[in-house]
Design a protein around this nucleic acid. Structure first.
Lengths: 349, 349
DNA sequence: CTTAGGCATGGAACCGTTTCCACATTTCGG
DNA sequence: CCGAAATGTGGAAACGGTTCCATGCCTAAG
């Protein structure tokens, strides 16, 4: 492998000059620079990142820590981050810190301590124990996408408000019996889900519908939404006319459940989600669109700003989700409450 | 930040001894080692990875390059790799090389050339132009999960064989009109998809059913499968009794389409997929299970083996997919071919 | 009782850059 | 025309580790 010494020799200059010519720091005569460049090209020279980092103290690498890499939101954010970093010529090191695993402890204990990065982006991280403190102790700029509220600069949508708008959308359409499907049972579960639930409750309360508010917890994915909806919709007497789902996957699960139970969407049941998942269109799902990819890119921008200037006070960027009306929601049908068809699960598809 | 010099001073030994004590290379008296360890702990010492890499030539980092990070297969493989690396204390740098993007060119041109890793895992990579040559020129051990056949060590399932078994499963159940849904139109599309199509065709030919073989191309995802199946199933006369889908997502799309068209699964239509996607169970999908997570872990093992000893000849590890029979497939129903219900799309859900 | 070899340690070179500092040469305002 | 500032270059010192080599001691084999 050709080193800068080789380049310098070939260009007949000193290492120092070669370095200046290639990095652009300091004075170099134009033709000298050209000669060095040519030599570098000829030798196929690429600076050793390790040596550069050691000398400058700057890795050109950003760490990304998230609890999952295989869920829609996280995967999309990851792609957004990756794309933005790519443009800046920065590498990305991924830390997949699954809650409650021994691996997670190692990540916080060992991996982060290596400081292989100039800055860190935490996505949807809900710190346990002393994890927040450990993040802090790393001593690198930290930006988060969802989560770590107050502790760092954050980019996210306003989950409370978004759930409110989803609920209001149904209320405006005349719905009163509106259930919230998905998310945490009790005090557990992700912050995001709890906030959305809170937004739903607030919205119901504002409309004087406290009494009718119902929360059906579920796993936050398609099968979870399906099962919860089967439960909820199976009993015709407590069946709502509208469902606010904690996210699109749950909403789609609910739609599939409704379909299986012979309940027509939207004439018998309106369903609204949050996300605008890649499947939303296929299921004609009305939803509040967020674009995780943009959130990832925004986080990169914020981080880079911090890497440049002095650390700004923690900033909170709240993006607004846009309501995308498709045909999973509609006005409440005065007839529909009489419908009793399909209360029993049919078997098979 | 405490350096090894500080540790050495505190433990009253030389840098050399401190290094040996901490890395475990070379002779160190037990009590000296203990003293150094204690000093390191007290100072909260963590070796600078850059300095270590520079001195040893070993980054403790593995690069992973894949065209997508947000598709089921890729995300699962990624988690498998991450988990395995975590156990070995290795970091993971992710390169998301989307086909045909300018970013991809930069990744191959600049990013990989930095050699920030000891080895590289390519997942489902289909090299364009001189990309294979560029990968080679990086000069680091390379293992791939799916793709790069022959060029490197590979771990994958035998797609041809797997599709064959899926097809044979339906044939054994008495099906004759079996269509293949999903994948490439013409010569384009992913290698994997082409191989599966080939396996299907071969199996049909073996059973003397060449004439009945039908391929309906589609985007390789849920909506793609849905649309293709609506087309295929819409016309009762050319409707098959069985569908082999290129993957589970497409299969599920087809099941949803069938359901929407009023076609009963499995009595009117059997559907078999490949993957055992996380949604497969919910849809009672019969499928050939592959476990991408294991493939990722296996790739890590192979790579680590290469990093240790001398490079072995390219090895091909073909995993066997297991047939998981659920209730989306069943014996062909002699009555069912007479069924004509639901040929027209109903609107709404 | 030698002496070869294992054990334990420290000094110094080295990994491949960047950058500080010193020095020389221009350029330019006054 | 002169001195200061700007420009251009090279030597050498970092950056923070690992490892080669030399040294000295101790043990055990011959």
């Amino acid at each position: 492998m050709a080193g800068i010494t080789d380049v310098a020799r070939l260009a007949a200059v000193s290492k120092a000059t070669a370095s200046r010519a290639l990095t652009g720091n300091g004075y170099v005569a134009p033709d000298t620079r050209a000669r060095v460049r040519a030599a570098a090209d000829e030798l196929g020279y690429t600076a050793s990142t390790n040596a550069v980092s050691l000398a400058t103290g700057r890795t050109s690498n950003i760490g990304v820590i998230m609890p999952y890499a295989n869920r829609w939101f996280f995967a999309e954010v990851l792609e957004g981050i990756q794309g933005a970093l790519l443009e800046h010529g920065l590498d990305l090191t991924l830390y997949d810190a699954k809650p409650g695993t021994p691996g997670r402890a190692r990540i916080f204990g060992d991996f982060l301590a290596r400081k292989r990065f100039d800055g860190l982006i935490a996505v949807g991280l809900e710190p346990e124990d002393g994890e927040l403190e450990m993040l802090r102790r790393v001593g690198r700029p930290l930006v988060s996408v969802v989560g770590l509220p107050g502790a760092t600069s954050v980019v996210a949508i306003d989950d409370d408000h978004t759930a409110r708008r989803a609920t209001e959308h149904l209320i405006t359409l005349g719905h009163r019996r509106i259930a919230f499907v998905g998310g945490p049972a009790g005090e557990h579960g992700a912050n995001v889900d709890r906030q959305r639930l809170r937004g739903y409750r607030a919205s119901m309360a504002d409309a004087g519908l406290d009494e009718l508010a119902v929360h059906v917890p579920s796993a936050v994915n398609l099968p979870g939404g399906y099962e919860a909806a089967v439960d909820l919709l199976g009993d015709a007497r407590r069946r709502p006319t509208g469902i606010v789902a904690v996210c699109d996957e749950v909403a789609i699960g609910a739609i599939i459940a409704a379909r299986r139970l012979g309940i027509q969407v939207p004439s018998d049941l309106s369903v609204v989600g949050i996300d605008d998942h890649e499947y939303a269109e296929m299921f004609s799902l009305t939803t509040l669109r967020q674009v995780p990819r943009e959130q990832g890119a925004a986080a990169v921008d914020m981080l880079l700003a911090q890497l440049g200037g002095s650390p700004p006070p923690p900033v909170e960027v709240l993006l607004t989700a846009r309501l995308i009306v498709r045909s999973s929601t509609g006005p409440v049908d005065p007839q529909s409450s009489a419908v009793t068809a399909g209360t029993r699960l049919r078997t098979g598809w």
